[in-house]
């Protein structure tokens, strides 16, 4: 067991981990931050996406030890300081960009990373960027609309 320390959603945290402990396990099991999900065992689904030092990362693909000292943001850290939904989260609700909610934390984290890199993406750019995030419920249609709306671009009413 090794001690790791990192900043998660603005709070300093630390804990004991095995060499094989994945970052997503550390978040879910040690820190109890169960908003980050595990949907696969081949790094294909994106339900575990978080931000590590500002970059979108599948937290099942790195060991907790590799994140020692990192700045981490998870879905639990995405709301406004008063607890209300941030613009991206709000757009997901307004445009019905989620159904069962299981892919949603990863989708929101990926969407936030996309908009940080490319503030006004086209539909094609959004679809390409999300190709690492699986959703079985929405058919992606409303996720794309939500991200377009969050980027301040017009979205046709339906």
């Amino acid at each position: 067991m090794t001690e790791v320390s990192m900043t998660v959603n603005g709070k300093a945290v630390s804990g004991q981990v095995e060499g094989r402990t994945l970052l997503v396990q550390f978040l879910r099991e040690t820190l109890g931050l169960t908003g980050t999900h595990v949907g696969c065992d081949t790094s294909q689904c994106g339900t575990c996406v978080i931000h590590v030092n500002g970059k979108a990362v599948k937290s099942c693909t790195i060991f907790a030890q590799e994140a020692d000292g990192a700045q981490i943001t998870t879905i639990e850290g995405m709301a406004n300081p008063d607890g209300s939904l941030s613009p991206i989260q709000k757009a997901f609700q307004d445009y019905h960009g989620l159904q069962c909610g299981f892919c949603t934390p990863g989708m929101v984290m990926s969407a936030a990373a996309l908009l940080a890199e490319n503030p006004t993406p086209t539909e094609a750019e959004i679809r390409a960027y999300l190709s690492g995030n699986l959703c079985r419920c929405t058919g992606y249609h409303n996720i794309v609309r939500a991200i377009l709306a969050a980027s301040g671009q017009g979205v046709a009413a339906e």
């Binding site: 879910r28 099991e29 908003g35 879905i75 995405m78 609700q93 019905h96 989620l98 909610g101 299981f102």
Partner: peptide, 21 residues
């Protein structure tokens, strides 16, 4: 009507079976 359940799903507060210990 906007979905009320979205609030917990969008903030990481959903409670799926694997979240129960």
């Amino acid at each position: 009507s906007k979905r009320r359940e979205d609030i917990r799903f969008l903030t990481g507060k959903g409670r799926y079976t694997d979240d129960i210990n």
